[in-house]
Design a protein around this nucleic acid. Structure first.
Lengths: 257, 257
DNA sequence: GCATTTATTCAACATCCGCTGAATTATTTA
DNA sequence: TAAATAATTCAGCGGATGTTGAATAAATGC
């Protein structure tokens, strides 16, 4: 049965190569791009190891050998999927940051606006950029939390941008210890990426009151949340409220403030 | 300390067994537990699909067939790994929450204390509970951000606990729209789980100023951060601060289908 | 002590894995 | 048009995958 289907498919393709196929082919995206699209969708759903190149090429409607031909191998395809949209996205985020900065001159921008420049281009594309973008950000969510891929891909494609954002945050929070800002940024990234995962968990928890897909709702809340958190970190007691000499934990959970 | 306890436990078990049992065998944990330990470590590093049952049984030093025998299959092993420590952890977290509540009577507890009851038992075990606990929380970080596993495992093992925490948060934030609290909780979980992933990214970003493994530092900051964020959500304008009318920047996003 | 249940070992299965080389077709270049 | 390059197809390689059944060993129950 499988053989039969393969044969018919091959015959169809071979039969109308000249006239009809050219139209259908011309209308379709090039194979390389279709592989990227299919890989993006499937990697986002099941991770790198949860998807085979045969899954991807079948979804893309191309031959399995084309992954090695166009990208070199499965790992290189994964990296290419990750790189593609980062290169479209980050210039815009940086541009929005600089615009926020210019608009605030001669003062410093509000923390909310800085965070917003960081999150809005992503939230906007995940909400209204199409299925590819939504898959992409779900993939970012997994990569960011992966000990194997996070340190490699996130660092490579996002760290220069993040450093710039943190520098501007420091301008907006004069006198604040840099460590507080780094941790505040880490909390921001965690909150943002979990949002992109859109696991539907908040839907169930809230009984339908909130929806994972409501990225406009996130846009209305995240910057305010993070800005308040950062200010609290910078204002609060920098010194440790209690020593780290404690070794037993189960016995006295109440000793913790 | 752990070694001593293990030895005594093993001796007790060996006493019941025939003296002929080899020392190496008698000193080791039962195969089922060793499989759970090895699976925990490997799943945390490479995810469900990134690890084979042969990888796990080789690391555990047992035969490959024992996974099917003791657990039924690979997926069931994964679920068992996830369940094991959740069942040890959650009663303590709930107990800490109720204690915080009692201590605040007749008033309501501070938001910081509620968040702390949620995060502290996890941070404490990840920091000083041993390698198994650290692996476990790294696994939770991946599962929480996975569209495939998150809705199943997180919901099953953590939702009852989360609902209780959110109920107490609502007591502590009278008059606050429930949606703000659900979103605030979602941001908290995202920040917490990314912290558990310990990808080392903040180390690189901060030039060594912050360390991923500094969970005491997280403990000092996260509750304050989240409490401030939640208060800002509840106090702030519920309506959108700026409409979602497409700004000039959003126009660029239209190019992609 | 013997029977029964439980635990473990071993070999093998069918299937899928990523990747490749040779052949074929399509497109570009001269 | 002819040659050259690029893109695609096809069949198959060696190996890894999860799982299974039969045989063996160990522990337990009576």
């Amino acid at each position: 049965m499988t053989v039969v289907r393969r044969k018919t498919a091959a015959r169809k393709a071979a039969g109308r190569k000249t006239a009809k196929a050219s139209v259908a082919r011309a209308a379709a995206k090039p194979a390389k791009e279709r592989i990227l699209d299919a890989g993006e969708q499937l990697f986002a759903r099941n991770g790198f190891y949860g998807v085979s190149v045969r899954d991807i090429t079948k979804a893309a409607g191309v031959d399995v050998a084309l992954v090695s031909y166009h990208f070199g191998g499965k790992r290189e395809l994964f990296a290419a999927v990750f790189r593609r949209r980062a290169e479209m996205l980050n210039p815009e985020r940086l541009g929005m940051l600089e615009q926020v900065r210019r608009n605030a001159l001669p003062g410093v921008p509000a923390l909310e606006d800085i965070v917003n420049a960081f999150t809005y281009p992503m939230l906007e594309r995940s909400a209204r950029g199409g299925a590819g973008w939504k898959s992409y950000f779900a993939l970012v969510a997994q990569v960011n939390n992966s000990p194997e891929w996070g340190p490699v891909l996130m660092t490579e494609h996002f760290d220069p941008l993040v450093e710039r954002f943190i520098a501007v945050m420091r301008e907006a929070l004069p006198g604040c210890d840099a460590r507080e800002i780094y941790w505040g940024y880490q909390f921001l990234t965690g909150a943002l990426t979990l949002t992109f995962a859109e696991t539907g968990r908040i839907d169930k928890l809230s009984g339908g009151l909130c929806r994972s897909s409501d990225l406009d709702g996130v846009h209305q809340r995240l910057a305010r949340y993070v800005a308040a958190g950062l200010r609290a970190l910078c204002a609060g007691p920098a010194a440790a409220p209690q020593g780290k000499a404690r070794s037993d934990m189960a016995a006295n959970a109440d000793a913790c403030p």
